[in-house]
Design a binder for these strands. Sequence first.
DNA 1: TAGATTGTTAATCGATTAACAATC
DNA 2: TAGATTGTTAATCGATTAACAATC
Lengths: 215, 215
Amino acid sequence: MEEKGISQAVIGRLPRYFRYLGELRDKGVERISSQELSRLMRVTASQIRQDFNNFGGFGQQGYGYNVEFLYKEIGRILGLDKTHHLIIIGAGNLGQALGNYINFERRGFILKGIFDKNPALYGKKVREIEVQPMDRVEEFVRENDIDIAVLTVPKSSAVEVAETLAANGIKAFWNFAHVDLNVPEGIQVENVHLSDSLMKLSYNLERYNKEQENG
Amino acid sequence: MEEKGISQAVIGRLPRYFRYLGELRDKGVERISSQELSRLMRVTASQIRQDFNNFGGFGQQGYGYNVEFLYKEIGRILGLDKTHHLIIIGAGNLGQALGNYINFERRGFILKGIFDKNPALYGKKVREIEVQPMDRVEEFVRENDIDIAVLTVPKSSAVEVAETLAANGIKAFWNFAHVDLNVPEGIQVENVHLSDSLMKLSYNLERYNKEQENG
DNA sequence: TAGATTGTTAATCGATTAACAATC
DNA sequence: TAGATTGTTAATCGATTAACAATC
């Protein structure tokens, strides 16, 4: 059975299932019921079953779910059985930090290039990969089968860079720039707006303090 | 009027409104209607009006919203009129990158300390702030009125560190560790699970490619 | 077989959108 | 006043939870 029309709410939960199942597997747990998983993850068993059933029947009545099997299936659904080639645009602090994060590689996300327009950074190495000048990126993308571009450039250049990259075949953007990209239909964008996230935290902190004061 | 019982869906949209309104203000725009803002942000005008009305009436019939006023109000709702003191736990690549990100300071998030358990990092400076040994963190938190802890430690130590910090008065965690924290009721947690985000992107990329193949 | 637990349908809840009366 | 646009109520849509028949 093939998945279709799955809501982003469900997709957003898959990585968390994947993480918990991976941990269970590492502990040697063979099977788990939706109810046990429900207690562990603090979500309803109903939601777990509904979520999994979007992709077809992974379980077995009276038994539950096989941890190893479910783990692998979710990984496959998330596309983690495939290798993805990525480049980082912007070799500042955040770009370098992401480039150094070895765990992505374990999941099949292979860093192929880093680009920056600051000549002072050319040749600097991030895990075997040398920072290259920005004006080489278009050719590089066309010749190296790159799927994903990680944008860690200032917001002032992000929109333009994304358009250029999309025109050269990039299919997905992991966008850390604090701006909404403007890319053609069908090009995927996942935003990580760190300051938005911090503001949300600030709101919740504020609200809770206020509630305490007011009783 | 005071806000209460606002859904996280609404809160999650506030920073984006804040960003667009700030840009409009910087351009010298004085007023905007929900319909104009709707076109700009690509959300419905209905949603904009509903969202704002959660916090009381910010607009005026026949006129729209005053950009400057609305911008400030949303900032206030998000707690950006207050100063927050934060510490970073874990001075690795990501911790240093976040510490160097100057923009947070502009919004009132002031970095007060950085801690790591690796002695090789003690004394290393991140924007005037010296990395301190982990065993000084509890005293530091108690004595320096710190609200927010940024967790950029490995998942293996994150849960324990969070518990310790919560016991010493930290009220909010910005958690970059790939694990669910276990903190007392009322302590706020905002998770930034980067690998989850990347997996979501991978799913959407995968799905789109598949749809293209199958027509 | 009896017990357990899924897969799935139905009920509920919450969030989004539409509509329009209030009002500047 | 007439036109514009909000604030707010009602309608719709989608997501979550509950219930239970199917089945291992």
